[in-house]
Amino acid sequence: MNIRHAKTFLLGALALGFLVSVAASHFNSYWLFITYDIAINVILAVSLNLINGYTGQFSLGHAGFMAVGAYTAAVITNQFGDLNPFAAGAVFSGALLAGGALAAGAGLLVGIPTLRLRGDYLAIVTLGFGEIIRVIFQNMQGVGGARGLSVAHGWTDFFWAFGAAAAAVYVVAALVHSTYGRGFLAVRDDEVAASAMGINPVRYKVTAFVVGAFFAGVAGGLYAHSKQFITPGGFNFMQSVSIVVMVILGGMGNTVGVILAAVLLTLLPEFLRPIAEYRMILYSLLLVVLMLARPQGLFTFRKQGDAK
């Protein structure tokens, strides 16, 4: 996706979000909630794609960042009672940003080990971080511990969900499609050569983690205010893996493909409901077959990552 597409996507999603949120009362609410899931998954997948796809780091802890954002935003909005729409909008945007910021802080913390680690080691460390975050929430009685936390306001609507998704897509695309952003790809392609060209790999990796974690946090906030109930168990390793599957299915470093994959993998379970118990088996087989037959992802048709 080039940057002009990203801008179009941004405006289009915002307009669509606005229109639909105005007309929301006419929609079947079940499908409406699924569209929120789609937007949330797009955010998660696109932000993880910056870390895993463009920068070549393998993070398996995205759900941990999501959890930080979800709990932060929920705790903030739970302080408020019923508000008029404008006040609610202000509080909600503040809460989402705060969730994103705290998640970004966690991303900074996780980014630090990337100074040293690569490949499979990094995967395990991020997995470990994700699990540690989960265990911490499990032990925080103030937010319900393992029982979970009720979220008072169901403020996530089409406008917020797609607005945030558009922002995430725009930010990642704008970052990557600049001379500055070629550094992410350079670090992925060849770290030694990149640093010999004056690129500070540590800086890029940490940036990728911080930006990726920020949007995972925002997605977590949206998730919390869509489901209105969150538990630490909802942000476990499996959740991280399912985001990874979206990135891999779409093609690492291919924003459009990753968006398509996020949409597909959110809708698929709805159609697979009759055979729900086979779903995860199907996912896992998909992953294995994809790696054997089409490691560049379903939606990447060029051999190279979407350069230019």
């Binding site: 393998f58 499979d120 893996v241 990874v244 995860m280 896992s284 992953l287 790696m291 054997l292």
Partner: peptide, 20 residues
């Protein structure tokens, strides 16, 4: 193939065994 490809496959196998 790249190590990452194998790692992802291994995660896939792991999920497959658990869910099966």
């Amino acid at each position: 193939r790249p190590k990452l490809t194998v790692l992802i496959t291994a995660i896939g196998i792991s999920l497959f065994l658990e869910n099966t």
